[in-house]
Write a protein that binds this DNA or RNA. Structure first.
Lengths: 357, 357
DNA sequence: TTGTAAGCGTTATCAT
DNA sequence: ATGATAACGCTTACAA
């Protein structure tokens, strides 16, 4: 500090970098003055170095360095009409192991393009939903990615009405490009897997009723078994938590006849279910086969390992962000289905020889 | 839709809300014109309803509603010198189950105060680190919360040099208010827990070397056992992943004499470790006791349940955000230590009677 | 209580 | 190639 002050005696005070909290941040005009050029030249030099004389460019860069100048984002946004910020919308308590990977994919793809990400969570009908919609109209962001399976609406207008590009990841949303896996096909593969193992009495543990993915997954299961007169289906209500899985196991134990296999709407439900079933003395898959959905890391580290559908979480995020960036460049974008992967593990096995009730 | 158009025939076209993507978003001047007042009155009516005549207020609100007006964030930020946006900084691949809860705490606390959250991830020395530092100086945000255990630096200046309020959550960072649990005390409780169960040969599985929490936890363990001549400590390198836990178990099996207890730097490591140890034929805690750290949900749903330190994740986030908001209001803020909780479960038990090697 | 107008810091148009 | 200057849309003195 002392040495800094001594230095300051010999040089213009404004040459001490970086500016501290007490003083005003340097503006482009300060840089222009120090470099002995106009603000227009500073702006040009920074935006398009090739458009100015090398000598001028160097003077500007020197001044920027000395002053510790960083362009003001608000002024730039106001002038350019864009913010290089995009909104990522979630809803309710999302499944952390699933969405965190998607978020990483989004974040890294946006970062290399120079975009930032605002993360917002809303529940339907809350003030927060209105805030999300307002943000679409405020010019604070250039576009949005919804992980919420639906678009927020408030006061008679929806997110989409702002006219900004919007993509959905992880769930098909009408009228906007969606990056998804074919959940219906994936769930059917799980159904066939169980049926081919001989199971005929099956339970399905749902996710939260408001969830879009839950809707698709449940309807798929229901229609599959409705068409098979040799099979029976029980539906147990749950949500995307380990605790819901445990609770579902309790409900499951009371079923008579007790199904020999359980389709869970998510891995977390399945893991919670398995733990509680085991605590109750059941063997997995000896007494009951269990499947999940999503392919989170813990599905590989529970015992037994979980049969599930692996979603390419990172790639979903990455692809969705890339799609949105393309739309921001004016390109048209359509929905895309990424490949998923049925991962058969030790949590599913042949139907027990005797009725397990 | 059809009815809207018919309506439009009778009314001014600009009365059709909300504005669509083809047309320019309404400005405050449009509202002023429609309401027959000045822009200043509109601004006042919106910011401080009590400061205008009720009749004028109603006219303004009506115009706002009809036009679908939302104030432009960039213009407002430029003028006010603040953005109501805060930056949340993570680093490397964070532990999803831990940080996602912290993020929820942050997000909800900020949301009720009308603040948004930009989420950024950086690795030291990458362009992304420079971008994070630049953001502090760009006026794009009003403050920052670091979950990274360190402040980003680039080009000779650090995040802190911008003079904006910054708080750290989950790790003590010098020179900024930090919201933490007493990790040293917590880790000591785990050490005592194992020693009091009779364990004398103990292993510690580290987190990633660059991690601040890992440093504290490891040093605590090392100094604890250094002072106890009747105990031996092996250190196994890992990171915050389930896979690292599995790998550590392999290294653990090769130790001779093999420790009878393992302290893991995180729950995920511990869960991975337990799974691999069990796969190798070891009983937990019969052959080896295992502890974790953090208290993620899965610690309650693995078998056996994990002895660990519960961090108040949500509250850490909530408190950190509240602290930052207080600093933005000009209040001084200091560090705060939240209570944690030693949660003893079935993964730890008495030292095996015979040397387990 | 309300209106007028300056100014926030930048980019881009238009001269030169 | 560079400089002067007009927006961008808002808030807030200051005037009325």
């Amino acid at each position: 500090m002392a040495s800094l002050k001594i230095l300051a005696l010999h040089a213009d005070l404004s040459e001490v970098p970086p500016h501290r909290n007490t003083e005003r941040a340097p503006r482009i005009a300060d840089v222009a003055t120090k470099a002995g050029v106009s603000t227009a030249s500073v702006s040009r030099a920074l935006a398009d170095p090739a458009s100015v004389r090398p000598e001028l460019l160097e003077r500007v860069r020197q001044a920027v360095r000395v002053l510790g100048y960083t362009p003001n984002a608000a002024a730039r946004s106001l002038r350019e009409g864009r913010t290089r910020t995009i909104l990522v919308v979630t809803r309710k308590r999302w499944s952390a192991p699933f969405f965190s990977e998607v978020l990483h994919g989004i974040e890294s793809a946006l970062a290399v393009a120079g975009y930032s990400m605002i993360l917002a969570n809303f529940d339907t009908g809350t003030p927060r939903e209105a805030a999300v919609v307002d943000m679409m109209f405020s010019g604070h962001i250039d576009g949005a990615i919804v992980l919420s399976g639906m678009v927020a609406s408030s006061g008679g207008r929806s997110m989409l009405d702002a006219g900004l590009p919007v993509v959905s990841i992880g769930a098909s949303v009408e009228a906007i490009p969606s990056i998804v896996v074919d959940e219906e096909a994936a769930m059917l593969r799980l159904c066939w897997h169980l049926v081919s193992l001989g199971h005929r009495e099956i339970a399905y543990v749902t996710g939260p009723a408001v969830n879009a993915n839950e809707g698709v997954r449940r309807r798929t299961v229901e229609s599959f078994f409705r068409e098979r007169s040799d099979c029976g289906l029980d539906v147990i209500a749950g949500d995307f938590t380990l605790e819901a899985g445990r609770a579902a196991a309790a409900a499951f134990m009371a079923l008579d006849p007790r199904p020999t296999a359980v389709l869970c709407c998510s891995d977390e439900i399945a893991i919670g279910f398995m733990g509680a079933a085991q605590d109750a003395g059941l063997d997995v898959p000896g007494d009951v086969s269990v499947t999940g959905f999503d392919g989170i890391e813990f599905a590989d580290h529970c015992r037994p390992k979980l049969t599930t559908i692996r979603q390419p979480r990172r790639e979903l995020g990455h692809t969705g962000a890339a799609r949105l960036l393309a739309m921001l460049r004016g390109e048209a974008a359509d929905s895309i289905t990424l490949p998923d992967d049925l991962r058969v593990a030790a949590s599913t096995g042949p139907r027990p020889p005797l009725p397990s009730s």
